[in-house]
Nucleic acid binder design. Structure first.
Lengths: 348, 348
DNA sequence: TTGTAGGCGTTATCAG
DNA sequence: CTGATAACGCCTACAA
């Protein structure tokens, strides 16, 4: 491959000038610029990202940590691919590449080493769990001043940069949609309490019910683990009290669909189904029978936002530019959800 | 952060020795090794991947090119996340990181620059299209001797390294499953002919029908674009000749489910449905109503295989070691599929 | 078994 | 506006 020196020789300039032209820095005489461009095109010269990164001590990589999912279909892949796409789009806009890593099942990830080794300039963490080891690792990151952003999980009493959807409001909307139609006995199939997401949904449910002059009935509170299977299991409980239950709100689509399946397995006909509202508006929602109403979460946009925040942060934020474009830079930022209404929740 | 020099000083050795110990190369006196390890742990020293890559002129990154998917739900995200996980698993085992890129909608990707810039040491390409620009780009890669592997697409008359599933056999199995049960009028909803995958499925269908002493009936051949919507559209045709059609084989689950939806929209009852077999065995298959029989594709394993081949190739294959572990290194390799039978295709 | 020193391809600083 | 020239942090012969 052509070297920078060859380009310099061909263009009749110094190597430094070649770099200046290619990086668009410093004042350059137009003719010089032209000569350099021509020469480098002719020779097919491409600067080495490796050398560049080394010299700048910037990898140019945006790290993305994904939970370990393969084969364990707790969450829909939809979820992650949307976020990843959003992140990728912003990264590309800023000339950064995506370095994707999967969290290993047991062990806690050593986030700081990722930065120390200079593999990434910033990092987005998806699906962090709220356990001790994880928290400690994140605190260390924070302490060392590495730019990182957590998606889809909130750590109370920490001031991590976080991006999430407004699950309180999303859940409230879902409940309101049901109560507005006169449903009074709404079962809520939530996910594990260890996810901040689950807690927020419960809050939203409470608010929604209160607005309709109702209270949470703990006998209508069920817990699954976000898998379809756990929905099927919850169906047992729901089927048993089908007289009292006239609607089901599930914390994600998979569980909602699981409940539907469970009811079907028990021979319950669609016309006898309670109303259903799911969550995520994954592609499974529109594929469900009946089509599942669901709370749409702007995963793609969340990915974009997280990436933007990080990039604008790690790309030298001067004292003057801070607090203008990204006021809540270090704070938690929530994107709005939207209720998508389909047949499953409409009174017939 | 602690520098290598500090470690060397603390351990009372030269910097070179520090590197040797940390890289496990060359003969080292046990005591020296211990001193170095201690010193580096004490100082929290972590070698810079940047500098290391630069010195070795190896990025340590395995590139993965993904098709541009966001919002266009032609393929299931399931598909990609499985492959990505498989790739990631093998990459990790070999100390490589994943550099993920999304193909931009219009333009052809400049694969060679990826290598020239030294961003990646090897590259896996998912969802390549068989158009002229793409082919040319791939040929150039080949010519320059860069290690790359194409997944899920076959280029005739090229000897690219390719990994795919055996779609001929998978489709044959699906058809046999149907004919074995006595279904004779099987509609085949295929994807666009521009994907080698589609062509292979058609072949499999032909073989399967022939085995049952039948021929392909071109009036039963439909084409969609792998989206659910296209399945819904195909349902119009199928509904119109429901007397003649007793089974439907679709080239992926989304389309199969789309057809089911289309039939439902037309008021056709489940008990009057033709038998259905989908393809991919994505999570949507088991969520479908009725649960959809489908040809399982080992995406995860395909990812592992592709990564393995590349890694073993780019990690110095000597003349002696070649043609032993990976006989078909530069050839096409197919993994077996498996028919998963669910309610949708069982005669009632 | 270990130290020395050159080189990797850029960036960036400092003269000119 | 442009040309030298030090870093950058690590790897790896080569020498000892």
């Amino acid at each position: 491959m052509a070297s920078r020196k060859e380009v310099a020789d061909l263009a009749g300039v110094s190597e430094a000038t070649v770099s200046r032209v290619l990086n668009g820095v410093g004042p350059i005489k137009e003719e010089t610029r032209r000569k350099v461009i021509e020469a480098s095109e002719q020779l097919g010269y491409v600067p080495s990202a490796l050398a560049r990164s080394f010299a700048r001590s910037k990898s140019g990589n945006l790290g993305v940590v994904l939970p370990y999912v393969p084969k364990a279909h707790l969450f829909s892949a939809y979820f992650f691919s949307e976020m990843l796409s959003g992140i990728g789009s912003k990264a590309r806009d800023n000339g950064m590449d995506l370095l994707v890593m999967f969290r290993t099942p047991g062990e806690v990830m050593n986030y700081t080493d990722l930065f120390r080794r200079q593999k990434v300039d910033a990092c987005i963490i998806l699906g962090a769990r709220d356990d001790y080891g994880e928290l400690e690792a994140l605190q260390q990151l924070q302490q060392e001043g590495h730019p990182f952003c957590i998606m889809n999980q909130h750590f109370d009493s920490e001031s991590f940069m976080e991006v999430d959807a407004d699950h309180v409001e999303g859940s409230r909307q879902a409940i309101r949609h049901l109560t507005d139609q006169g449903y009074r006995n709404i079962a809520f199939l939530n996910g594990p309490d260890s996810y901040s997401n689950s807690q927020e949904r419960l809050q939203g449910v409470q608010i929604g019910l209160n607005e309709a002059g109702m209270q949470v009935d703990s006998s209508l509170l069920l817990e699954g683990n976000y898998s379809r299977r756990s929905g099927v299991e919850a169906a047992a409980t729901i089927a048993a009290q089908l007289d009292e239950i006239d609607a089901v709100f599930a914390a994600n689509d998979r569980m909602a669909i699981g409940v539907m399946h469970g009811l079907r397995e028990r021979g319950i006909k669609v016309q006898d189904f309670p109303a259903f509202v799911g969550y995520d508006d994954s592609d499974a929602a529109e594929m469900a029978v009946p089509p599942l109403s669901s709370v749409r979460v702007p995963f793609y946009e969340m990915g974009e936002l997280a990436a933007s925040k990080l990039i604008h942060r790690s790309l030298g934020v001067t004292a003057s530019s801070v607090n203008t474009d990204f006021p809540s830079e270090t704070a938690r930022q929530l994107l709005p959800t939207e209720l998508i209404i389909r047949a499953s929740s409409i009174r017939n």
